[in-house]
């Protein structure tokens, strides 16, 4: 008789704050329950208070892993995009969240990991490592990665320059990238506002594209960024 194959959880010897900020996260039943309840509440809030409208939901290539990119103006953005994905993909939808902001303290980490299911993205020093984590995530089927290629919320509401990360992530791969445009979020909840205003918001989802036929390189990365920025802007 051969031995059983045990697989201890990787975070067994970690405290709560470490566990929340770590990635990939080990599953916790209570986390799934809280996230599901929170997601229902968020969807209800967006529908009722912001009268959210979703256009082009059929463009999501559900079932395979894909990247969802959008303009970034407001803290509502990630909530709107996750709400655009069907509820059964909730625990497999990961908005990349700035590690230096969303995982900087225990309450923020708790919110970012339990409610948002955020992927801690180090936009300062370990960008390459964070991209490797994203690649691993996309290597498994059925995962949704949400990225704001501008890297930060726009202070004016205008679309900023797309950083190279998204290009480096998908160059030479067949991973579908879905552009989306968030309209009204800036008016509803701009940077610096304390509480969202009851403005209407719209999520427009464009057609998926992929860049598997392009050779990896600096020019390709720039091309992908420009192409996606154009696609997002075209939806606006």
């Amino acid at each position: 008789m051969s031995d059983w194959d045990y697989r201890p959880a990787s975070d067994l010897d970690q405290g709560l704050s470490e566990r929340l900020a770590g990635f990939p996260r080990e599953p916790h039943l209570w986390m799934y329950v809280v996230r599901s309840i929170a997601a229902l509440a968020i969807r209800l809030w967006l529908r009722l208070y912001h009268r959210m409208e979703i256009v082009g939901r059929d463009n999501l290539p559900l079932g395979q892993s894909f990247v969802l990119v959008a303009n970034h103006q407001s803290h509502l953005d990630a909530l709107m995009l996750t709400s655009g994905v069907p509820l059964r993909y909730l625990h497999r939808t990961f908005p990349a969240a700035a590690a230096d902001y969303f995982f900087s303290s225990l309450p923020r980490s708790a919110f970012a990991s339990v409610v948002i299911n955020g992927l801690p993205f180090d936009r300062k020093t370990k960008g390459a490592e964070s991209l490797a984590v994203c690649r691993q995530l996309l290597g498994n089927p059925g995962n949704v990665l949400i990225i704001f290629p501008e890297g930060t919320r726009s202070a004016t509401g205008d679309l900023g320059r797309f950083r190279s990360g998204i290009g480096r992530l998908v160059e030479g791969t067949d991973t579908p990238v879905v552009p989306a445009y968030l309209a009204g979020a800036y008016e509803a909840f701009p940077k610096g506002a304390l509480f969202p205003r009851p403005r209407k918001v719209i999520l427009r989802i464009g057609e998926a594209r992929s860049y598997g036929n392009l050779e990896a390189g600096r020019e390709t990365v720039d091309h992908i960024c420009a192409d996606l920025a154009g696609a997002v802007r075209a939806l606006g």
Partner: peptide, 14 residues
């Protein structure tokens, strides 16, 4: 369950 890996199977855990 987390130490043995059983935790991955929620039917049994629940």
């Amino acid at each position: 369950a987390r130490a043995t890996g059983l935790y991955e199977d929620w039917w049994h855990v629940v």
